[in-house]
């Protein structure tokens, strides 16, 4: 592990300990009440979810056309994080929606496209786990198609129906709401970097182990 890892892990742990305090002390939003505080988890995890998906897609395309196994390991690790942070996003979203819209689930554009992106990542992991030899290339192909699909899902679902609050509310929030939100976002980002590094490291060790087996055999 690189030297920074332990320090960053401790920092991330501390930030996760402090974040609830900040969130609890943030002003009580009058219409939404306590449920509004879910946003401090929902929004950052959604951002990191999107970031993981981008990392996975870009790394997959690079692997497909250059054949560099490091890109493949990065793509696989990122896909796992898409599933993880996607799950957090998709669980916290309906909790908020129940209060805000009076219903757990709405087939609005952001919910539906998030769900579809999450499904593609799950399909990617299933393919990697059960596809057998050669599934690295196939996974990269799937990730590329999944990326190309994003605008189509977005447009089609958007035209179909929509009621999700626009993202443009974020920068205009009063700082008393904003500080815990940005703090939370940085915490999630740090967690993302740590987990990504950890999973890539695991893949690297798998690859090194394979290489060792091969060298013993030769």
């Amino acid at each position: 592990m690189p030297k920074w890892f332990t320090g960053a892990a401790v920092l991330c742990g501390l930030m996760f300990a402090v974040a609830p305090v900040l969130i609890a002390n943030a002003p009580y939003e009058s219409t939404m009440g306590l449920v509004q505080k879910i946003f401090y988890v929902h929004l950052p995890s959604a951002w990191v979810f999107l970031l993981s998906a981008i990392v996975c897609g870009v790394a997959s395309v690079r692997f497909l056309f250059r054949g560099d196994p490091r890109q493949d390991r990065l793509a696989w690790a990122a896909a796992e994080l898409v599933v993880l942070f996607g799950l957090v996003t998709l669980v916290t979203g309906p909790l908020w929606a129940r209060k805000a819209w009076g219903t757990w689930w709405q087939w609005d554009v952001r919910l539906t496209s998030s769900l579809m992106g999450w499904m593609v990542a799950v399909a990617y992991l299933l393919l990697r786990k059960y596809g057998g030899p050669g599934s690295d290339k196939l996974g990269a192909g799937l990730a590329l198609f999944g990326m190309a699909n994003v605008p189509f899902v977005y447009i089609s679902v958007n035209y179909w129906r929509t009621i999700h609050p626009a993202t443009s509310v974020v920068p205009t929030l009063p700082s008393s709401f904003g500080v815990p939100l940005w703090f939370s976002a940085v915490t999630f980002l740090l967690l993302f970097v740590l987990l990504l590094r950890l999973r890539v490291r695991l893949q690297e060790q798998h690859a090194a182990l394979d290489a060792l087996y091969l060298s013993m055999d030769a």
């Binding site: 596809g131 699909n149 089609s156």
Partner: peptide
Amino acid sequence: MLVRARSRDVLLPVLLYPITVPVIIA
């Protein structure tokens, strides 16, 4: 591409449906 893969029968719909959602909606 799944011709070479294991469990190809079940993987085909698993990979195909999430990607073709826009086609189905449209």
